[in-house]
């Protein structure tokens, strides 16, 4: 996050130079138009296109070997998606995953950040890099690595455990969500930790001194000073995690061939992908994608509302 500072400085310097030449409107256009054009072309237009596509369907007739016809079907694709039991099940699974993953991630990242920040931390820089490193491993690679570790016949860890009488098979139906949560945690905990560490570092040291003078111990400092002051960052991390988990896709897709517990529509995103690229029904896929986007919107803004209602000064 520290990289943003020099850019801001740079832009403000350029802004002042620009103002002298062509006035504020020119400067505003210069800085917003390229972004706006790209945003329209690569975000807004495809979303609108997906929404339009989601109201059509490809129909054939008879043996289905004649040419296809594109038919306007209003909200049929949405009705079909929402009346498919496996799609509803995938939504339920996703919420379950959110309930497992979000607290796990936020608590882990906070603890890691607090540990690194603690005055007695040993080699804080080295540990920060070590915790952050998994984030540099692409999701697919990370999942492949964990996939090897999760399958008994290829996993030295599970084989070792089996040798002392502990048989664990992480990719069973009742544990597969935890197996996936573990991968996400491994990849993203370090990233979230960095955000929280940055927030902790920006707490003025006078506050710690004042706390010490008032006789607060380490625990009290954590609960009365550190946590309340990094609350905005914790909210941010929670929000990222909620949105990230709603997009759950790569991990189950890569693990799917290794287990009977992951179907082709295990998560809503997988269901949409499966419809678009395996089953050739891009209209239904567009409807599913829109449903996921709306849910992500509702959940993130719902979460923000709940947090803000408590009347925090910090946000």
């Amino acid at each position: 996050m520290s990289t943003t500072i020099p850019i801001e400085r740079l832009t403000s310097r350029r802004k002042t130079r620009q103002r002298r030449r062509s006035g504020p409107i020119g400067a505003i256009l210069l800085f917003t138009v390229p972004f706006a054009l790209m945003f329209l072309a690569f975000y807004v237009a495809p979303i609108i296109y997906a929404m339009v596509q989601s109201t059509f369907a490809q129909k054939s007739s008879g043996l289905g070997l004649g040419a296809l016809q594109e038919v306007f079907v209003f909200f049929d694709n949405y009705v079909r998606a929402l009346s498919t039991p496996s799609f509803i099940a995938s939504l339920g699974r996703l919420f379950l995953f959110c309930i497992i993953e979000v607290p796990l991630m936020v608590i882990t990242a906070t603890i890691l950040a607090l540990l690194l920040e603690a005055g007695k931390a040993v080699w804080p820089r080295a540990f920060r890099v070590i915790f952050f490193m998994p984030y540099g491993v692409p999701g697919v690679i990370a999942t492949l690595l964990w996939g090897f570790l999760y399958v008994p016949s290829t996993s030295p860890v599970l084989q070792g455990l089996a040798a002392i009488g502990i048989d664990i098979t992480p990719l069973q139906p009742n544990s597969v969500l935890f197996a996936i949560a573990n991968i996400s945690l491994w990849v993203y905990a370090g990233y979230n930790m960095i955000i929280l560490t940055a927030a902790l570092n920006s707490i003025p040291s006078e506050l710690y001194e004042a706390a010490k003078i008032d006789g607060a111990g380490e625990w009290k400092t954590i609960f009365l000073i550190k946590l309340p002051l990094i609350r905005p960052s914790i909210v941010l991390v929670t929000l990222f995690t909620i949105i990230g988990t709603l997009q759950l896709f790569v991990e189950p897709l890569v693990l799917s061939p290794l287990t009977t517990a992951i179907s082709s529509d295990f998560t809503p995103n997988m269901a949409a992908y499966n419809q678009a690229f395996a089953q050739g029904n891009s209209n239904l896929a567009a409807a599913m994608a829109v449903i996921v986007a709306i849910l992500a919107f509702i959940m993130s803004f719902g979460f923000l509302r709940i947090v803000n209602k408590k009347g925090s000064e910090a946000w």
């Binding site: 979303i47 296109y49 990222f240 949105i243 709603l246 997009q247 829109v290």
Partner: peptide
């Protein structure tokens, strides 16, 4: 990095469609 995936998913689907 992770705030946009909802939108990108749709973008990818839409791009494939077109």
């Amino acid at each position: 990095k992770r705030i946009f995936p909802a939108i990108t998913t749709m973008a990818i689907v839409a791009l494939a469609l077109s």
